[in-house]
Design a protein around this nucleic acid. Structure first.
Lengths: 118, 118
DNA sequence: CTCTATGCAAAAACTTTGCAGGGAT
DNA sequence: ATCCCTGCAAAGTTTTTGCATAGAG
């Protein structure tokens, strides 16, 4: 992703670039707690900017079992598997063939038990 | 569901029966806030018992966009659709054909936009 | 100068925990 | 007497908001 041309509606400040760089370089979705030590901004700034990113469609998020919100920059569309035992989040890149009449599907979250915990 | 024979590990107290009755009679998953006016117990009691029900596999839950946990007694296995616009939760009874190697799938949550909001 | 971004502290929202009293066996 | 259940109040956790300052154009 070209950070310089993310959106005309967003000024790419230092704080914002920092958030995006962490997310873009991560192979898995991250919660604020996972990132905060890599970021020097206040949490209010983080959350305000994440909200803006989501409004712009740059970042997507979902809630996990642990009540935290996990954020990511989706380079390629994929789904997520959340283990109910160890809470690990896995990205599922296989195409899932789900179609529900008249519904737009943005995101599929599958919960269950991962191979490790089985 | 036969409330009297739910689990040998759980004593069916008045509070517990009340929670289960509300959940069993509901056609959709409910959060504490949705139920609390129908229940006379303290919220601590509610949450402690819900936790116990989940441990026993009697109740299942998932987190929605609004950061609340939604609880249900699944009479028949099904999935859920959460609208990212209006936050409405829909039960999806069509069988979804998802299989991920070596993973046990318990629960599928699909997020997107519902017909109403489209 | 104006508009947006930021930090700090406080608030908000939902859930959990500590503790003491009550009930059942 | 013991064990589990409950209510109340307090604490916990993640996210949001208010307000004043700082910074960009």
């Amino acid at each position: 992703m070209d950070l310089e041309n993310i959106s005309k509606n967003i000024k790419l400040t230092t704080a914002r670039r920092a958030i995006l760089e962490v997310l873009v370089n991560s192979k898995k979705p991250l919660a604020y707690e996972d990132i905060k030590n890599n970021l020097s901004m206040d949490k209010a700034t983080f959350y305000r900017n994440i909200t803006k990113f989501e409004e712009e469609g740059i970042v997507s998020s979902f809630e996990s079992n642990d009540k935290k919100r996990y954020f990511e920059v989706q380079k390629t569309k994929h789904s997520h598997f959340i283990c109910n035992v160890c809470s690990k989040i896995e990205c599922i890149h296989e195409k899932l063939d789900i179609d529900i009449k008249n519904h737009q599907i943005d995101n599929i979250i599958i919960k269950g038990i991962c191979p490790n915990c089985l």
